[in-house]
Simulated assay, not measured.
Amino acid sequence: MTHPITDTDLFQPVTFGSLELANRIVMAPLTRSRVGKDGIPNEMHAEYYAQRASAGLIISEATNISAQGRGYAMTPGIWTDEQVAGWKKVTDAVHAAGGKIVSQLWHVGRFSSVDLQPNGESPVAPSAIQAEGKTYTVDGFVPVSKPRALETDEIPGVIEQYRVAAGNAKRAGFDGVEVHSANSYLLDQFLRDSTNQRTDQYGGSIENRARLTLEVTEAVVKIWGNDKVGIRLSPVTPDAGNTPPDSNVMAMYGYLIEQLNQFDLAYMHFVEGATATSRTVPEGVDMDALSALFKGSYIGNNNYDLEMALERRAQGKIDAVAFGRLFISNPDLVARLQHGAKLTIAPHESYYGGGKKGYTDWPTGAY
C-alpha cells in the first residue's frame, strides 16, 4: 500500500455550477469509434463508462447532434429515440457507480464525407473551403468532401439541431452538456477567419464570427440552465482538416470568452495548445491570459501529467484537470494518480474501432 497524496485539493470534492463532483479529475471526451452504423451506444459502452466513474466528471465522447453533423463512421449520435435509449444505459451505469457524466454535443461541419451525409449530400460549413485529410467510413478511409456554405436562413436550423440534442441528452439522463466549440469542427470553423469567409452577420468581424457559438450556447442554456452547461474551446488546435488558427487568436477568443461570461456557465474546458500533440502555442498567444478571462470554473486540458496538474492547481491556474488517453488504459486513473501508482499506456491501435479488447479489458490496480 502507498500513502495517498494529501497536500492538494485535486482529489477533494468540488462544485462546478450545480454539478457536485467527487474530485477535480475530469475524463476528457475520447472518440473510440465502437458503435454501429446506427450510432446507438449499448451495454459495452455502459460498462466502459461505468469503469471510469471515479472521475469527478466524465465528458462523453463527442456525440453527433444530427445526421448532418456526422463526420466519422461508428461514432454515437443523440438525435434518435434509439440513440437516447442507448445513452440512458450509459448514464444509468455511471450513476449506479457513483459518477457524473455530461454529453458533448458535436457537429463536425466541413470535416465529413458525402458517404456519411444524408442522401449523399455535401457537408456543410461556414464557407465552401476544402479541408485536408481523410475521414473514416464503413468502407475505410476516404478523403473528406468539399463542403458547401450554409445559407443564412439555414443557420436557425443548425441551432435547432443543438437545442433538440440538448433536450435529448436530458432525456438520456445526462447530468449536463458540453458545447463542442473546439478542434476545428463546425462552431470553431465559424470562429476562425481561416475557415469563415462569410459576408453576412455570421462572418467578417470578430463579433459576427463568434455569433453562432454564442447563439448555440444560449439555446442549450435555455434547455439545461446555465449551471449544467460547459463549453470546450481550442484556440490553436489545427485538427479536423489542418485548420490554421485565427489570424488574431487573442482578440477572437478573448472576445468570445468575455461574452460567454454572461451565461455564468458551469465550466470552460480549454485545450492548452494543440489537442493531443503539443502545448506549444504560436508567438503572441498566451493561453493563461485567455483562460484568466473566464470568470467561472476552468478545466485545463492537453498533455497533463500529475506533476503539471499539481503545480498548475497550486498556482491557481486551473480548477480541474482533464485527462484523455490515460483514461483509456487506466479506468481507475484517479486512484492511481492519488497513490502514485504506475500508469498503463495504451497502444494507439486500441484507440479506435473494435470491441471489448482495448476498451473494457484494462485491469485496475492495487494501491
Rank of each mutant, 00 (worst) to 15 (best):
R171I: 06
A172D: 02
G176K: 08
V179Q: 03
V179S: 00
V179T: 01
V179P: 03
A182Y: 05
A182I: 05
A182F: 06
S184Y: 07
S184T: 08
Y185D: 04
Y185M: 00
L186T: 13
L186S: 05
L187T: 14
L187M: 13
D188M: 09
Q189E: 09
Q189W: 08
F190H: 09
R192A: 02
R192I: 04
S194G: 11
T195A: 00
T195R: 02
N196C: 04
T199N: 04
G203H: 03
S205Q: 13
S205G: 15
N208I: 06
R209F: 14
A210N: 11
L214H: 09
V216W: 07
E218H: 07
A219K: 02
V221Y: 00
I223S: 10
I223M: 05
I223R: 10
I223T: 04
I223N: 05
W224Y: 08
G225C: 03
D227K: 09
K228W: 03
G230P: 01
G230D: 02
S234N: 06
P238A: 13
D239A: 14
G241A: 08
G241H: 04
N242Q: 15
T243L: 15
T243K: 15
P245C: 03
P245H: 05
N248K: 12
N248M: 12
A251E: 15
M252F: 10
M252P: 05
G254M: 14
Y255C: 04
I257L: 01
I257D: 00
Q259V: 08
Q259M: 12
N261W: 05
Q262N: 12
Q262Y: 13
F263C: 05
F263N: 01
D264L: 00
Y267L: 05
M268E: 04
F270P: 00
V271H: 08
G273V: 09
A276P: 11
A276D: 14
T277Q: 12
T277C: 08
S278H: 15
S278L: 09
R279V: 04
T280F: 11
V281P: 01
P282W: 11
V285I: 09
D286K: 10
M287W: 11
D288I: 13
A289H: 02
L290H: 00
S291K: 03
S291A: 15
L293E: 00
F294I: 00
K295H: 12
G296S: 01
S297H: 00
Y298I: 05
Y298C: 08
Y298V: 07
G300A: 06
G300D: 02
G300Y: 01
D305M: 10
D305R: 13
D305W: 10
L306Y: 07
M308Q: 09
A309Y: 04
L310I: 11
E311V: 11
E311L: 12
R312W: 06
R312Q: 15
R313W: 13
R313S: 08
R313P: 02
R313H: 15
A314P: 12
Q315V: 01
Q315D: 14
Q315Y: 11
